[in-house]
Amino acid sequence: MNFEINIIGSIDHIDKVNGNIDAELILENGEVYTATFFTLENIKNIMQKDKKSGESANGIYFCASDMIIVDIITEKIIYDTFKDLIESNDISWACTKIK
């Protein structure tokens, strides 16, 4: 199946090892799905920040809808992740359909 990705914001300006970014998957049938890609390091840093700020019950948990965790954030990894989710028929539970 052919598809396109739309990365929200500039992937060139985020920390690829300690970052997160929103992306959309646009299927050839017009369906659009959304997800946020996080690195493990980014989740760790968010939880440490929350321990200091008191958010998320003082950093005891982290949650995000449509979360996909990757080692590093690159356009190729986002593309390959979406491709695998489509091929494995897991896209509908891993991401939210927005159109």
Results as ranks from 00 to 15, higher is better:
residue 42 N to Q: 04
residue 44 K to V: 00
residue 37 F to Q: 01
residue 48 Q to V: 00
residue 59 G to C: 09
residue 60 I to H: 07
residue 38 F to I: 04
residue 58 N to R: 09
residue 43 I to K: 08
residue 38 F to Q: 00
residue 61 Y to K: 10
residue 56 S to A: 09
residue 66 D to Q: 12
residue 66 D to P: 15
residue 67 M to G: 09
residue 59 G to R: 10
residue 67 M to T: 09
residue 32 V to Y: 14
residue 54 G to T: 06
residue 45 N to L: 01
residue 59 G to N: 05
residue 39 T to R: 04
residue 65 S to L: 15
residue 65 S to I: 13
residue 36 T to D: 14
residue 40 L to I: 07
residue 52 K to T: 07
residue 52 K to R: 11
residue 31 E to V: 14
residue 39 T to N: 01
residue 50 D to F: 02
residue 55 E to Y: 12
residue 50 D to G: 00
residue 31 E to R: 12
residue 33 Y to W: 13
residue 59 G to L: 12
residue 45 N to S: 10
residue 46 I to F: 03
residue 40 L to Y: 05
residue 44 K to E: 05
residue 55 E to C: 09
residue 41 E to S: 13
residue 53 S to N: 04
residue 67 M to Q: 08
residue 57 A to L: 11
residue 47 M to S: 03
residue 33 Y to K: 14
residue 63 C to D: 12
residue 67 M to V: 10
residue 36 T to H: 08
residue 29 N to G: 15
residue 65 S to R: 12
residue 55 E to R: 09
residue 58 N to F: 14
residue 36 T to R: 11
residue 58 N to C: 13
residue 41 E to N: 08
residue 41 E to D: 02
residue 38 F to E: 00
residue 40 L to D: 00
residue 30 G to C: 13
residue 37 F to A: 02
residue 36 T to F: 05
residue 54 G to I: 08
residue 54 G to N: 01
residue 64 A to K: 08
residue 37 F to N: 03
residue 37 F to G: 07
residue 65 S to W: 12
residue 29 N to W: 06
residue 53 S to P: 03
residue 65 S to K: 14
residue 46 I to L: 10
residue 29 N to S: 15
